[in-house]
């Protein structure tokens, strides 16, 4: 459950960062995650890389892809009506899914990289894989947190979320910040794809759709645009889903997740860590 939660959290970060900077829901992000999983497959089977190398390859590959989608699909629409950008994102997502499907029509099996060692910690049994997933995910989030709250880039990123006009005044180009945002967000999505593929080793081109939406929900639960909120939301959703599966038939997992979202949105529309927008007349 911490494992699933940490994967949701990693993907949710990508949604939230892009939203923070561009106020746009990047619906293609779930598919970047999916491609992360496919790059993991490619790297493990064709390049025969180690796990560490695999992770790096899929992160860089995904980051590159994220930057490219922004450069070629979203940037021309930066000043167009917001919905055009959203529709474009849906289109990019569909393109990535179907392109992958055209190249790889059958689900792929990820070779297992771990012998299932069990670790026992204070009454909790976890496989070493689960521990690794969680440690890696949390590690990446800590790095991100440092970048966002301690570096100049992070400052620009936060500045752009509250007032885009101020960033050029800081001597930083807006395009550069946006590109970096996509690179970091997509890179984390790629990492999530690899970790997910190793944990649930059958992958297919549409796997990003549902997981992507779940991650998106996580971002919303935490308060979209809020980076720490996305992490919190991911863990909450992972937790709720696993518990729902214990109490109800597993097929109800999605119903529970989405109902939770709806209830939350009706009572706290700005998420747990988000701030309500004040209406000014």
């Amino acid at each position: 459950m911490l494992q699933l939660g940490s994967i949701y959290a990693l993907i949710a970060l990508g949604y939230t960062m892009v939203y923070g900077v561009l106020q746009m829901i990047n619906f293609a992000h779930g598919d970047i995650f999916m491609l992360g999983a496919f790059m993991c497959f490619f790297s493990l089977t064709v390049l025969k890389t180690s796990l560490g190398q695999t992770l790096l390859i899929s992160m860089f590959g995904a980051a590159l892809l994220g930057v490219m989608t922004e450069r070629f699909a979203y940037r021309p629409l930066r000043y167009a009506p917001k919905v055009s950008a959203i529709i474009t994102a849906l289109g990019v997502g569909m393109f990535l899914e179907n392109f992958t499907l055209a190249l790889s029509p059958y689900p792929k099996h990820i070779p297992s990289v771990f012998n299932g060692k069990q670790l026992v910690m204070g009454g909790l049994t976890m496989s070493s894989l689960q521990v690794l997933t969680i440690v890696l995910a949390v590690g990446l989030m800590i790095v991100l947190d440092i970048i966002v709250f301690k570096t100049k880039l992070g400052m620009a990123l936060r500045a752009i979320s509250s007032d885009a006009a101020i960033v050029p005044l800081m001597g930083i180009s807006v395009n550069k910040v946006v590109s970096m945002t996509f690179a970091i967000g997509a890179g984390l999505g790629g990492a999530a794809g690899t970790l997910y593929a190793i944990a649930y080793p059958v992958i297919d081109p549409y796997m990003g759709v549902m997981v992507g939406w779940k991650a998106f929900i996580s971002a919303v639960i935490g308060g979209i645009g809020n980076i720490r909120g996305a992490m919190l939301g991911g863990f909450i959703l992972g937790f709720v889903e696993v518990f729902a599966a214990v109490l109800l038939p597993s097929t109800y997992r999605d119903v529970v997740a989405f109902s939770l979202l709806m209830i939350l949105l009706i009572y706290r529309p700005y998420g747990l860590l988000g701030r309500p927008k004040t209406l000014k007349v």
Binding site: V255, S259, M262, P269
Partner: peptide, 25 residues
């Protein structure tokens, strides 16, 4: 009545998902 924009979009999204999941069950 209460929410607009992105958040309402998500409510409708959740609605669609719930309908499908309920039917599947």
């Amino acid at each position: 009545f209460k929410t607009r924009g992105d958040y309402l979009a998500i409510v409708t999204l959740a609605f669609g998902m719930i309908v499908k999941s309920v039917l599947e069950n």
